[in-house]
Amino acid sequence: MDIVYILIFLCMASLSMIIFERRVYRIIIYTCIFSLLISLVYLALGSPDVAMAEAAIGAYAIIFFIVAAEKYYGKDARKATIGPTSKKNGAIGKIILAFIFVGGIAALFINFYPQIDANLYLRNQYLLRAGDDVGGQNVIGAILMGYRLYDTLFEALLLVIAVMAVGHLSWFSKDYIKSGKTSDVKRDRVAFYSIRIISPLILIFGIYLIMNGHISAGGGFQGGVAVACFFICRYMIHNIYDMPVNKVLKMEELIFVALAAVAIITVFIDTNSVVYQNFPEHLTTFQNIHLILANSLVGMKVACGFFVLFYRYITIERM
């Protein structure tokens, strides 16, 4: 019996709980559980990087959901329910529903996977050449930071745009929170002290993930989210509401420009480059410097972006 089947069964169980649950808070918590379980499925299928990203992001999105639910339902949020699934649909809705039903049943009999072996040329080339071309031992990191660095660049740009959109749409007259308000965590001494003990470890773990991204599982995105989680802990224990959000947003944009500059360095780390022709013994050093630099910049950028998102959402909750 493969462990993946057990995890898939648990995933389906949590999914059915999401479908039939009507209490808002429970839906949100079951979504978190689903995210965690599906990240374990990824881990069992041999992709620790994706598993880390999914688990971190699932945990992060849950905070936004809870803030939104608190905002929608006020003091009744913990008991609030949402209505039953609507049974009345229009004609178009009925046609689409029938289409989905037929498609779902047909999908059970269609083999989506090709019967012949897939073309493994790209996989083999990446596995064989990543160490020489980009350096490092993590092939996924090599693809993200070397072969597809421009892809990563525009993905980072998308995060900047998302942060700006959230900032724009959450901007109302009471734009900031006055200092002096306390977080609710302070009432619970056990939670307060355990967060105080755990938070530096989270920061160290995030920096470790960023710095070791090129030789083991992890990387800029995963480490960046872990560092951003440290700021949440800081918010909980330190009673700080007036953080310099606008400065951090500017810093994020500057880091994005720096990342674009680092992308130019990729010209010098190839085996065809000037560096290799003149100093072949120093190529590995150049490659490692490039990978660590790119990973740290991506990590800092993601941490800044998530920090701004978190503080915008907290502002909404406290308004």
């Binding site: 990087d49 990203a53 992001i57 993905e155 998308l158 745009i161 998302a162 990387g219 995105f221």
Partner: peptide, 20 residues
Amino acid sequence: PVPQALMITTIIIGFCVTAI
């Protein structure tokens, strides 16, 4: 490794979509 690298991109974009 190719789908894994692409799926990290997908996860980040999915998060952006959720936040917005």
